[in-house]
Design a protein around this nucleic acid. Structure first.
Length: 200
DNA sequence: CTTCCGATTGAA
DNA sequence: TCAATCGGAAGG
Protein backbone atom coordinates (compact mmCIF):
# COMPACT_ATOMS: atom_id res chain seq x y z
CA UNK A 1 0.00 0.00 0.00
CA UNK A 2 1.10 3.59 -0.59
CA UNK A 3 -0.06 7.05 0.32
CA UNK A 4 -1.23 9.43 -2.40
CA UNK A 5 1.09 12.44 -2.58
CA UNK A 6 -0.34 15.94 -2.70
CA UNK A 7 1.05 18.82 -4.74
CA UNK A 8 3.67 20.79 -2.82
CA UNK A 9 4.13 24.58 -2.72
CA UNK A 10 7.42 24.46 -4.66
CA UNK A 11 5.66 22.98 -7.70
CA UNK A 12 3.31 25.98 -7.61
CA UNK A 13 6.11 28.52 -7.10
CA UNK A 14 6.20 29.40 -10.79
CA UNK A 15 4.43 31.88 -13.04
CA UNK A 16 0.66 31.36 -13.00
CA UNK A 17 0.92 31.26 -16.81
CA UNK A 18 2.86 27.99 -16.48
CA UNK A 19 0.93 26.55 -13.54
CA UNK A 20 -2.53 27.09 -15.04
CA UNK A 21 -2.13 24.61 -17.94
CA UNK A 22 -0.11 22.24 -15.74
CA UNK A 23 -3.03 21.98 -13.29
CA UNK A 24 -5.30 20.55 -16.00
CA UNK A 25 -5.70 16.85 -15.27
CA UNK A 26 -4.68 17.26 -11.65
CA UNK A 27 -7.25 16.52 -8.94
CA UNK A 28 -8.80 18.67 -6.24
CA UNK A 29 -9.69 16.73 -3.13
CA UNK A 30 -12.12 18.00 -0.50
CA UNK A 31 -12.73 16.31 2.82
CA UNK A 32 -15.97 17.36 4.48
CA UNK A 33 -16.63 17.60 8.22
CA UNK A 34 -18.29 14.15 8.14
CA UNK A 35 -15.02 12.78 6.65
CA UNK A 36 -16.56 12.07 3.26
CA UNK A 37 -14.28 12.79 0.30
CA UNK A 38 -15.09 14.57 -2.96
CA UNK A 39 -12.60 14.35 -5.83
CA UNK A 40 -12.69 16.49 -8.97
CA UNK A 41 -10.48 16.43 -12.05
CA UNK A 42 -9.43 19.97 -13.01
CA UNK A 43 -10.55 20.60 -16.59
CA UNK A 44 -10.50 24.43 -16.87
CA UNK A 45 -8.23 27.12 -15.38
CA UNK A 46 -7.36 30.79 -15.75
CA UNK A 47 -4.14 32.61 -14.82
CA UNK A 48 -4.01 35.98 -13.04
CA UNK A 49 -0.73 37.67 -12.42
CA UNK A 50 1.25 40.75 -11.46
CA UNK A 51 0.62 43.68 -13.78
CA UNK A 52 -2.58 42.05 -15.03
CA UNK A 53 -5.49 44.56 -15.01
CA UNK A 54 -7.97 41.74 -14.35
CA UNK A 55 -6.11 40.52 -11.26
CA UNK A 56 -7.65 41.37 -7.90
CA UNK A 57 -4.18 42.42 -6.77
CA UNK A 58 -3.68 44.81 -9.69
CA UNK A 59 -4.17 48.07 -7.80
CA UNK A 60 -2.74 47.33 -4.39
CA UNK A 61 -2.68 44.93 -1.50
CA UNK A 62 -5.91 44.78 0.50
CA UNK A 63 -7.17 42.52 3.30
CA UNK A 64 -8.98 40.38 0.73
CA UNK A 65 -6.18 39.86 -1.78
CA UNK A 66 -3.35 39.77 0.76
CA UNK A 67 -2.78 36.01 0.37
CA UNK A 68 -2.01 36.46 -3.34
CA UNK A 69 1.07 38.45 -2.39
CA UNK A 70 2.43 35.63 -0.25
CA UNK A 71 4.06 32.30 -1.08
CA UNK A 72 2.57 29.68 -3.43
CA UNK A 73 0.41 26.80 -2.35
CA UNK A 74 -2.23 28.80 -0.50
CA UNK A 75 -5.93 29.01 -1.28
CA UNK A 76 -7.56 32.29 -2.28
CA UNK A 77 -11.34 32.14 -2.06
CA UNK A 78 -13.54 35.17 -2.68
CA UNK A 79 -17.25 35.93 -2.86
CA UNK A 80 -18.61 37.13 -6.18
CA UNK A 81 -21.99 38.78 -6.80
CA UNK A 82 -22.94 38.09 -3.22
CA UNK A 83 -23.84 34.49 -3.95
CA UNK A 84 -21.00 32.45 -5.38
CA UNK A 85 -17.51 31.63 -4.20
CA UNK A 86 -14.49 31.19 -6.46
CA UNK A 87 -11.39 29.13 -5.67
CA UNK A 88 -7.86 30.12 -6.64
CA UNK A 89 -4.49 28.49 -6.09
CA UNK A 90 -1.82 31.05 -5.18
CA UNK A 91 1.27 30.74 -7.38
CA UNK A 92 4.72 32.22 -7.98
CA UNK A 93 7.35 33.57 -5.60
CA UNK A 94 6.60 35.27 -2.30
CA UNK A 95 6.00 38.94 -3.11
CA UNK A 96 4.61 38.37 -6.60
CA UNK A 97 0.79 38.54 -6.51
CA UNK A 98 -0.60 35.83 -8.76
CA UNK A 99 -3.00 32.90 -8.74
CA UNK A 100 -4.81 30.35 -10.87
CA UNK A 101 -8.61 30.36 -10.85
CA UNK A 102 -10.10 26.87 -10.91
CA UNK A 103 -13.02 27.19 -13.35
CA UNK A 104 -14.35 23.65 -13.77
CA UNK A 105 -14.06 20.14 -12.42
CA UNK A 106 -15.10 16.72 -13.65
CA UNK A 107 -16.54 15.06 -10.54
CA UNK A 108 -16.77 11.33 -9.91
CA UNK A 109 -20.21 11.48 -8.30
CA UNK A 110 -23.03 13.99 -7.88
CA UNK A 111 -23.13 15.47 -4.35
CA UNK A 112 -26.52 14.92 -2.64
CA UNK A 113 -26.90 18.70 -2.18
CA UNK A 114 -26.68 19.23 -5.96
CA UNK A 115 -29.72 17.28 -7.15
CA UNK A 116 -31.30 17.29 -10.60
CA UNK A 117 -28.02 18.02 -12.39
CA UNK A 118 -25.89 16.16 -14.90
CA UNK A 119 -22.63 14.82 -13.49
CA UNK A 120 -20.68 16.60 -16.21
CA UNK A 121 -22.28 19.98 -15.40
CA UNK A 122 -22.40 19.94 -11.61
CA UNK A 123 -18.98 21.60 -11.28
CA UNK A 124 -18.87 23.33 -14.70
CA UNK A 125 -18.06 26.86 -13.55
CA UNK A 126 -16.07 28.49 -10.72
CA UNK A 127 -19.16 29.26 -8.64
CA UNK A 128 -20.71 25.86 -9.21
CA UNK A 129 -17.62 23.90 -8.24
CA UNK A 130 -17.33 25.74 -4.94
CA UNK A 131 -20.97 24.94 -4.24
CA UNK A 132 -20.37 21.27 -5.07
CA UNK A 133 -17.29 21.08 -2.85
CA UNK A 134 -18.76 23.25 -0.08
CA UNK A 135 -15.98 25.82 -0.37
CA UNK A 136 -16.59 29.24 1.21
CA UNK A 137 -14.69 32.15 2.78
CA UNK A 138 -13.65 30.04 5.76
CA UNK A 139 -11.32 28.22 3.36
CA UNK A 140 -9.39 31.23 2.06
CA UNK A 141 -5.73 31.82 2.88
CA UNK A 142 -5.16 28.20 3.92
CA UNK A 143 -2.28 25.99 2.83
CA UNK A 144 -3.56 23.41 0.35
CA UNK A 145 -2.90 20.24 2.29
CA UNK A 146 -4.90 17.35 3.80
CA UNK A 147 -4.78 18.96 7.23
CA UNK A 148 -6.95 21.80 5.89
CA UNK A 149 -9.39 19.37 4.21
CA UNK A 150 -8.56 20.77 0.78
CA UNK A 151 -5.62 19.73 -1.37
CA UNK A 152 -4.31 18.96 -4.86
CA UNK A 153 -3.03 15.73 -6.35
CA UNK A 154 -0.80 15.37 -9.43
CA UNK A 155 -1.93 13.89 -12.75
CA UNK A 156 -2.26 10.13 -12.74
CA UNK A 157 0.25 8.23 -14.84
CA UNK A 158 -2.57 7.18 -17.13
CA UNK A 159 -3.74 10.77 -17.67
CA UNK A 160 -0.18 11.95 -18.39
CA UNK A 161 0.28 9.15 -20.94
CA UNK A 162 -2.91 10.19 -22.71
CA UNK A 163 -1.50 13.70 -22.98
CA UNK A 164 1.83 12.39 -24.25
CA UNK A 165 0.18 10.36 -27.01
CA UNK A 166 -2.10 13.32 -27.83
CA UNK A 167 -5.20 11.41 -26.87
CA UNK A 168 -5.97 14.36 -24.59
CA UNK A 169 -5.14 17.94 -25.60
CA UNK A 170 -5.63 21.43 -24.21
CA UNK A 171 -7.09 24.60 -25.69
CA UNK A 172 -5.71 28.05 -24.79
CA UNK A 173 -8.00 31.05 -25.19
CA UNK A 174 -9.20 34.29 -23.58
CA UNK A 175 -10.57 34.51 -20.05
CA UNK A 176 -14.28 34.74 -19.25
CA UNK A 177 -16.38 37.53 -17.76
CA UNK A 178 -13.72 40.24 -17.53
CA UNK A 179 -14.08 43.97 -18.05
CA UNK A 180 -10.34 44.49 -18.23
CA UNK A 181 -7.61 42.29 -19.69
CA UNK A 182 -10.24 40.44 -21.68
CA UNK A 183 -7.90 40.10 -24.66
CA UNK A 184 -5.19 38.15 -22.84
CA UNK A 185 -5.27 34.40 -23.73
CA UNK A 186 -4.78 33.13 -20.22
CA UNK A 187 -7.51 30.49 -20.03
CA UNK A 188 -6.91 26.80 -20.61
CA UNK A 189 -9.31 23.87 -20.81
CA UNK A 190 -9.41 20.21 -21.80
CA UNK A 191 -10.50 19.82 -25.42
CA UNK A 192 -13.85 18.07 -25.95
CA UNK A 193 -14.51 17.82 -22.21
CA UNK A 194 -18.20 18.02 -21.29
CA UNK A 195 -17.40 19.41 -17.84
CA UNK A 196 -15.81 22.64 -19.16
CA UNK A 197 -17.91 25.72 -18.30
CA UNK A 198 -18.11 26.89 -21.91
CA UNK A 199 -16.48 26.30 -25.27
CA UNK A 200 -14.44 28.86 -27.15
C1' DC B 1 -19.97 56.50 6.76
C1' DT B 2 -22.06 55.81 1.91
C1' DT B 3 -21.85 54.22 -2.67
C1' DC B 4 -20.63 51.15 -6.19
C1' DC B 5 -19.48 46.91 -8.24
C1' DG B 6 -17.98 42.17 -9.47
C1' DA B 7 -12.74 36.40 -12.23
C1' DT B 8 -21.27 34.19 -11.79
C1' DT B 9 -25.32 31.90 -12.70
C1' DG B 10 -29.76 30.62 -14.34
C1' DA B 11 -34.14 32.28 -15.44
C1' DA B 12 -36.94 35.42 -18.63
C1' DT C 1 -31.08 40.46 -21.70
C1' DC C 2 -31.21 40.80 -16.75
C1' DA C 3 -31.73 40.40 -11.69
C1' DA C 4 -30.13 38.22 -7.33
C1' DT C 5 -27.26 39.54 -3.24
C1' DC C 6 -23.32 41.04 -0.20
C1' DG C 7 -18.31 41.58 1.09
C1' DG C 8 -14.90 44.56 -0.03
C1' DA C 9 -12.86 48.51 -2.24
C1' DA C 10 -13.19 53.24 -3.17
C1' DG C 11 -14.76 57.80 -2.32
C1' DG C 12 -16.49 61.70 0.79
Amino acid sequence: MSITPFIQPDWLSRSSLLVAPDLLGCTIVRQLPDDSIIRGLIVETEAYTEGDPACHAYRRQTPRNKVMFGPAGMSYVYLIYGMYHCLNVVTDLDGIPSAVLIRALQLETIPPWCPHQKLSRVAAGPGKLCRALKIDLTLTAKPLQPKESLWLEPRSQDYQEQIDRHSISFIQTTRIGLTQGADLPWRWYVKDCAAVSRKG
